[in-house]
Amino acid sequence: MVTGGAGFVGAHLCELLLEEDIEVIAVDNLATSSADSLDHLRRYAGFRFVRHDVTQPMPPSCEADVVFHLASAASPRDYLALPLETLRAGSHGTENALELARRARARFVLASTSEVYGDPLEHPQQEGYWGNVNPIGPRSVYDEAKRYAEALTSAYRREFGVDTAIARIFNTYGPGMRAHDGRMIPAFLDQALKNEPITVTGTGEQTRSICYVEDTARGLLALARADHPGPVNIGNPEELTVRQVAERIKHLTGSRSPIEYIDAVVDDPQRRCPDISLARDVLGWEPKVDSEDGLRRTAAWFRRAPSH
């Protein structure tokens, strides 16, 4: 079962599982996604979609051997527009998914986030770092929801012996992203393809590490197949400035867009880069798609997307 299965990462994970002849139940309330994202999966006999809000108890039909919990608003635009819903997805939603895993004696994989590190004072970020998070800022509805979800997942492991694992996903991109979801790469691509100004927040010197979505999905599957509880960083250790990402997208698309600088975002992390030594050691996982190739593939998809 994949909660948030119609979302960007969720849909890619569903496809990876189905390609390996694994039966998949995708659960989503479609608050920030569309059932259209699953159309290409309906050709698989082992695929089933259940429209359901995970903050409510799971339907009895949703039995599974592995539960991937991805349900949450994930883009800044979405979680700032849905603050309480985001907090409930991290709290009630995580508990309902954990209860299902407890009853079914299933492996439970929580899709957490690099946002639990906040604006990090440690670089690169290792899993033992506790983070530097503003608990009352506008981004806290997402950051703290994920931190609580990690605490709850760990408590279920200690209290009930549930077979849990925590993945901390770093910036992920690729085909299927919505142009206007507020995240850096789709925003830059949308602007570049329209020859509109590419708007970089702050100085543009803040860094990100971007991981192609197929690699992220492989990392989640590798963690599900392991016996490690995590947390494990899933991301690409190549560090780029936001300005470099904008320039690379402008070059790849042949855009005439100027790069413009706008006000910095509140609590925007200044450096973001994972240490993936643990993922390499315990999962045998590392990203395979470099940023140049991944951005080229994503730009090609955006050119074909209906909105372009």
Rank of each mutant, 00 (worst) to 15 (best):
G182R: 09
A224Q: 05
G182A: 10
A305V: 06
P306I: 04
A305L: 01
R43L: 04
A89C: 12
T153K: 02
S255Q: 09
N29C: 14
L121I: 04
G202Q: 09
E99D: 12
T207H: 11
T32C: 12
I185W: 09
E20Y: 02
A224R: 10
D293M: 08
F47H: 12
H40C: 03
P231L: 08
T203I: 02
T201G: 00
V162M: 10
R304L: 09
D21E: 15
M177V: 08
F170Y: 15
T216H: 08
R243P: 00
P287Q: 11
I249T: 07
E205I: 00
Y148C: 11
A145S: 15
Y148N: 09
I166M: 02
V242S: 03
E127A: 12
A226V: 06
R256W: 00
N195R: 11
P57L: 03
E150F: 03
R218C: 05
P83T: 10
F49P: 04
A71N: 07
A167Y: 08
D21I: 05
Y142Q: 11
Y129T: 10
R88L: 14
A104G: 00
D143W: 07
C62Y: 02
Q125Y: 01
L100I: 11
R272I: 13
I262K: 15
Y261P: 04
A45L: 12
N171Y: 15
A279D: 07
E19H: 14
T216R: 06
V162C: 13
L110V: 02
A64V: 09
I234Q: 04
S114Y: 05
P57I: 01
I198T: 03
D293L: 13
H52A: 10
R271N: 10
V67P: 03
I136Y: 14
L252Q: 07
P231V: 11
D267Y: 01
N29T: 04
F302Q: 08
V200W: 03
G7E: 07
P186Q: 09
L38H: 12
M177R: 12
R88I: 00
R107M: 03
H308Y: 14
A104S: 12
A155Y: 13
F108V: 06
V27A: 06
L121P: 00
I276R: 05
D181F: 05
P76N: 05
P83G: 10
F188A: 03
L189Y: 05
H228I: 07
S33G: 07
